[in-house]
Design a binder for these strands. Structure first.
Lengths: 210, 210
DNA sequence: TTGTTAAATTAACAATGTTAAGTATCAATA
DNA sequence: TATTGATACTTAACATTGTTAATTTAACAA
């Protein structure tokens, strides 16, 4: 029974309704395990209706990631207010990890799942925005620490430093997400692992003197 | 046309034939994109024949991982001969990364893909074997460095140290594998990132004095 | 009223993992 | 030697999936 014409905002609402339903299911059971029919049923539409808003399942997934990248950046916004750059950098690491570990399946979609590369031009997010781009937030902090002369003398490439810090935190989180129920390894406490990673990286990156 | 009876070794050969064909395809195009029929065609059998050797696709995947875990441990065996423990630890990190980056899709299957947890009891590999268990190799090295008194005084938990080192190298490798074609980030050279991660971790973990 | 467009639906397709049923070959036995 | 039965396969068949095509219904415009 296809009634009314829809205004632009109504279409937008339905779009986000689909996204939210899909994310909830993807996050609970993984992308491949969830069918288009199931997503549609959840919101009371037929499966084919989804194709009126998204080209295919991959496009739907990408739209979800887009909103989650924004959620990540938003969740880190307060942390960016901390005055001391080194403290801010540490807090950013903790905040990032908190996001990853409380939304492990979002995180998996965002950073651990193979999908077509994210091109800035076909994303709704603004690159290099302090509100929308988490990588920019990290780079900003690293840059501040660098300007404050707190890094060791041989560390000059801000991108390289940022990407290494990211890799360290990502390593702890992603290993936790994909391997923590593996019985082969005698896993230590996740917060201890995270803490040690942060300590080690700080000691390895910062000047000795103060 | 189903001929001959098969000896135990002939069955074993067919099993590894399936595994090798499946891995080659999985690695080239991802697990989900490869069909059972395709694997079968590759070796000149019908799809259903695979089910005479593996319960389902997941079991096949798991068998592949099993042989790849062994390949990883084997590839690190020579490194374990290096006399100096710190040098050995560094070389192990490089060796691990080399495996990950030259076999990114194997690596993805092994450490980045969600599958039923690996239980030591239903694996063909021997846990705590210097030849077959890469995590044991890492732990052995870390333990040696610890015994040599080269770690900082506050670092006493060998598992914790090993898992943090693992996380660091895994972070660099897995980020490279799943995100390196992402245009959002201005990626620096992978070997520079790996090098910095190793330097940072060593500086953060080892005693200052020598 | 008539036509056109929008929003949805149902029907249909080809492909997939998997199971069931069938078939040919060998080995042992009666 | 004829029969039995297991083994190693195959082909058929099924339910499910992503997706496309065809269809229906409602609203608006002329």
């Amino acid at each position: 029974m296809p009634p009314k014409l829809k205004t632009a905002t109504e279409r937008e609402q339905l779009r986000t309704l689909i996204i939210d339903a899909a994310r909830e299911l993807f996050v609970a059971r993984g992308v491949d395990a969830v069918t288009m029919r199931e997503i549609a049923k959840r919101i009371g539409y037929s499966a084919t209706s989804i194709y009126l808003h998204f080209a295919d399942k991959e496009a739907l997934l990408k739209a979800i990631c887009d909103t989650d990248f924004l959620a990540l950046a938003t969740s880190l916004k307060n942390i960016m207010q901390i005055a001391d750059p080194v403290e801010r950098m540490q807090a950013l690491g903790r905040g990032y990890a908190a996001f990853a570990l409380t939304h492990p399946n979002h995180y998996r979609l965002m950073f651990m799942t193979a999908h077509a590369p994210i091109q800035p031009e076909n994303s709704n997010l603004q690159q290099n925005s302090a509100e929308q781009d988490a990588y920019f937030q990290l780079k900003t902090v690293v840059s501040a620490v660098h300007s404050a002369g707190r890094f060791r003398a041989d560390l000059q490439d801000v991108d390289l430093i940022a990407q290494t810090i990211w890799a360290g935190v990502h390593g702890v989180c992603s290993l936790q997400i994909s391997m923590s129920c593996d019985k082969w390894v005698n896993w230590t406490d996740i917060s201890a692992r995270l803490q040690l990673m942060q300590t080690v990286m700080l000691r390895g990156l910062l000047r000795e003197d103060k």
